[in-house]
Design a protein around this nucleic acid. Sequence first.
DNA 1: TACTTCTTTATAATCATTATAATTAGTTTA
DNA 2: TAAACTAATTATAATGATTATAAAGAAGTA
Lengths: 147, 147
Amino acid sequence: MSEVYLKDALVTLKESGVRITPQRHAILEFLISSETHPTADEIYRALEADFPNMSVATVYNNLRVFRNAGLVKELTYGDSSSRFDFVTHDHYHIICNHCGKIVDFHHPGLEEVEHLASHVTGFEVNSHRLEVYGTCPECATGANKAK
Amino acid sequence: MSEVYLKDALVTLKESGVRITPQRHAILEFLISSETHPTADEIYRALEADFPNMSVATVYNNLRVFRNAGLVKELTYGDSSSRFDFVTHDHYHIICNHCGKIVDFHHPGLEEVEHLASHVTGFEVNSHRLEVYGTCPECATGANKAK
DNA sequence: TACTTCTTTATAATCATTATAATTAGTTTA
DNA sequence: TAAACTAATTATAATGATTATAAAGAAGTA
């Protein structure tokens, strides 16, 4: 399952003339297998056992390469650092206000909203971003403390 | 019209025990009258004629005060600095990928999406965020250069 | 008026991200 | 396979937004 994603991603990269380095392979693999929408620093620390000499700049550089190739989405919230999400099929995120957990949920794309926005504003629309906020079940039952 | 917003905002602040200083008054007034969803630095520079001694920290501090009071929303995108939006009635934003312009558009709230998300994930939902991206008419006709 | 508390100011610190320059390593082609 | 070309990595410094700190100032109150 996730091996298919990885293989496809590598093909996509190769087709756009991007070299497959061990670091890129590892970052992609980590992103795909990760359920946690990691920050650049989390990726860096997760891989430092395998790549003791890897630079943080490499992580940032490659996340940008992946983003430009459409493989990865950057998620920015009010807090300090961006999170990165491997793009698979259309899904949205729901985020816990207390513990920050991000969970995927599936929902059909909001084309009608895009159409209305385009009609009202005269923009040519090409994408949108939607996130839902709330309290996750664990925080709701008091298992975690509030932030 | 906008005076009503300002007056209401001042009442809200006073009720939550926040002192109305000249700086706070000016920042709020600027936010309400502004059509541009300014950054903290833009607010700072816009007011430095009237408040030559005001510190950037004051702008940040008060934006946080306003945010905590529910008067202001912080908008974070991939780029460097947050933008701040005075909260009026429900509206969403459409953002130009080329020149960064942010335009409001009205659309009924996406309660059904919130319900679905809540049902699927078990979260208690309390809000969401939606933005549409595209190219504004000016950029589409080539009046501006691409980023 | 004096007191208490909140706010502002000025400045330094923090921290994520990006730029730079030198070195290293993929990839291509002979 | 090896040389050559070019892109990628590394280490480090720089940038820039935001936050923390401490001292000075102002608002509200007794």
